[in-house]
Lab assay of single mutants.
Amino acid sequence: MQRVNMIMAESPGLITICLLGYLLSAECTVFLDHENANKILNRPKRYNSGKLEEFVQGNLERECMEEKCSFEEAREVFENTERTTEFWKQYVDGDQCESNPCLNGGSCKDDINSYECWCPFGFEGKNCELDVTCNIKNGRCEQFCKNSADNKVVCSCTEGYRLAENQKSCEPAVPFPCGRVSVSQTSKLTRAETVFPDVDYVNSTEAETILDNITQSTQSFNDFTRVVGGEDAKPGQFPWQVVLNGKVDAFCGGSIVNEKWIVTAAHCVETGVKITVVAGEHNIEETEHTEQKRNVIRIIPHHNYNAAINKYNHDIALLELDEPLVLNSYVTPICIADKEYTNIFLKFGSGYVSGWGRVFHKGRSALVLQYLRVPLVDRATCLRSTKFTIYNNMFCAGFHEGGRDSCQGDSGGPHVTEVEGTSFLTGIISWGEECAMKGKYGIYTKVSRYVNWIKEKTKLT
Rank of each mutant, 00 (worst) to 15 (best):
Q167C: 05
L319Q: 00
E193K: 09
H302Y: 14
Q143T: 02
V277S: 01
A308T: 12
N80M: 04
Y352K: 02
N104E: 03
G403E: 15
L20D: 01
I429G: 14
G125N: 03
G363K: 13
C108H: 00
G160N: 07
C157G: 00
G106H: 02
A307K: 11
W88P: 15
G160D: 10
G351E: 02
E142K: 07
K438E: 15
G253F: 07
F123N: 04
I428L: 13
K188M: 11
Y201H: 08
P301V: 12
S169H: 06
D95T: 15
A397V: 09
R43A: 15
K446Y: 02
C157H: 01
Q241H: 11
N138L: 09
Q241G: 06
R43Y: 03
N147A: 14
T84I: 04
V269L: 11
G442A: 14
K446Q: 06
R191S: 13
C134W: 03
L244W: 01
V242Q: 01
E27Q: 14
A149P: 09
L189G: 10
N138M: 10
G125E: 02
K137T: 11
K440V: 04
I275V: 10
R46L: 10
N151Q: 09
V195I: 08
W240T: 01
C268V: 01
R358A: 14
K387E: 12
Q370A: 04
K188Y: 13
F388Q: 15
L383T: 14
K339S: 15
V174D: 07
D378N: 11
N343T: 12
I15G: 04
R43T: 14
I284M: 08
E73P: 06
P333H: 02
T194H: 11
L19T: 04
V154S: 11
D111P: 02
L130N: 12
V174A: 08
T381G: 04
Y305D: 01
Q143S: 00
K109H: 11
E72A: 15
N304G: 10
V451P: 01
V154N: 08
A436Y: 08
Q241R: 06
H282G: 07
K247L: 03
E270N: 04
L321H: 01
S70M: 08
R298P: 00
Q219G: 10
D200H: 07
G363T: 14
C18V: 10
V153W: 13
D110N: 15
D232G: 06
C119I: 00
E66L: 05
E116R: 05
T290W: 09
C134I: 02
R191T: 08
A279W: 01
L369I: 07
R62V: 08
T225H: 12
L367T: 14
E456C: 05
G349F: 09
R180F: 04
V447T: 06
S156E: 10
N151P: 06
A265G: 04
T342M: 03
E171D: 10
I40R: 08
G398S: 05
S25Y: 14
N42M: 09
E159F: 06
L460F: 12
R294I: 02
F176E: 03
V181R: 10
V4M: 14
T84D: 05
E323T: 11
G432I: 04
C134S: 03
C435R: 04
N127M: 14
E53K: 07
Y371T: 13
L372E: 11
E76R: 15
H303D: 11
F78A: 04
D378Q: 07
K89G: 12
K152M: 13
H400Y: 14
Y115L: 03
Y22M: 11
V451N: 03
Y371Q: 08
E208R: 12
A366E: 09
N222Y: 11
L321R: 00
V242A: 04
V199K: 09
A380C: 07
D110S: 15
V153F: 14
E54M: 09
T417S: 11
T29G: 06
A233M: 08
G398E: 06
I15C: 05
Y371I: 14
F251W: 07
E67R: 15
N38Y: 14
V416M: 14
R43N: 11
S354F: 10
W118P: 04
K109R: 12
T389C: 09
V77Q: 13
L244S: 00
G442L: 08
V154W: 10
N36K: 13
N304A: 10
G349D: 13
N147Y: 06
I443S: 03
E86F: 05
S70I: 05
V92K: 15
K168Q: 12
G349Q: 06
L319I: 08
A250I: 05
S184A: 13
T426S: 03
V273I: 09
I256S: 00
E288Y: 04
T458C: 06
K188L: 08
A266G: 04
Y444S: 01
W240S: 00
Y201R: 10
H400V: 14
E86Y: 06
K51F: 05
R384F: 05
F399C: 07
N36S: 11
T81A: 10
T158L: 08
K109M: 08
S169R: 09
D33A: 10
V4D: 06
P197Y: 14
C155Q: 00
E434H: 13
V92M: 13
L321C: 02
G236C: 03
V242S: 01
F360C: 07
L318H: 01
D410N: 08
P101T: 06
T381E: 09
E73A: 06
C268N: 00
D111V: 15
E159V: 07
G179E: 00
H415R: 01
N310R: 06
C28I: 01
K274Y: 02
F251G: 05
T422M: 04
T389Y: 08
G246A: 11
R373P: 11
A366M: 08
G432D: 10
G421D: 07
Y22G: 04
H400F: 06
E35C: 04
V277H: 00
E456G: 06
I428Y: 05
T190M: 05
S385Q: 14
T458D: 01
W453C: 01
P175N: 07
G351Q: 03
N313C: 06
P235N: 05
T342D: 03
T389Q: 12
S411Y: 13
D150Q: 10
I275E: 02
F87A: 13
E142Q: 12
G50E: 09
T332C: 05
T81Y: 10
L24T: 05
N222W: 07
M8E: 08
I299Q: 09
G253E: 03
T276E: 14
T386H: 11
V296K: 01
R43K: 14
A164N: 08
S107M: 08
E281G: 10
N127D: 07
G398L: 04
A380N: 06
G94K: 09
F71V: 11
R62D: 04
S423R: 13
V77G: 15
L367H: 13
W88S: 15
E53T: 10
N80S: 11
Q185R: 10
E340W: 14
T133D: 10
L41S: 12
Q237V: 06
M8L: 10
N343C: 03
D338P: 12
Y161Q: 02
Q370V: 03
I284Y: 08
K293M: 06
R294L: 00
D378C: 03
L372I: 10
N147E: 11
N113I: 08
L32V: 12
E10K: 14
Q241A: 10
T225M: 09
E142S: 13
L372Q: 14
P414N: 13
V263N: 01
R298L: 02
E208V: 09
N203V: 07
V273W: 04
T225W: 12
T264V: 04
S99M: 15
Y22C: 10
Q90R: 06
S204D: 11
N258W: 01
T209K: 08
A380Q: 13
P101V: 06
T81F: 07
Y341S: 14
I428D: 00
A436N: 14
S329G: 14
K446A: 08
N306K: 10
F121V: 15
D405Q: 14
E53F: 06
G122D: 05
C108V: 02
T218H: 08
D410P: 13
I390H: 10
G421F: 04
Y371K: 08
L189E: 14
A279D: 01
D111L: 14
D110G: 15
N38L: 09
R46S: 14
C252T: 01
H289F: 11
N135C: 04
W240I: 01
L20N: 01
F345H: 02
G427S: 01
K260E: 03
I297A: 04
P324C: 03
V326T: 07
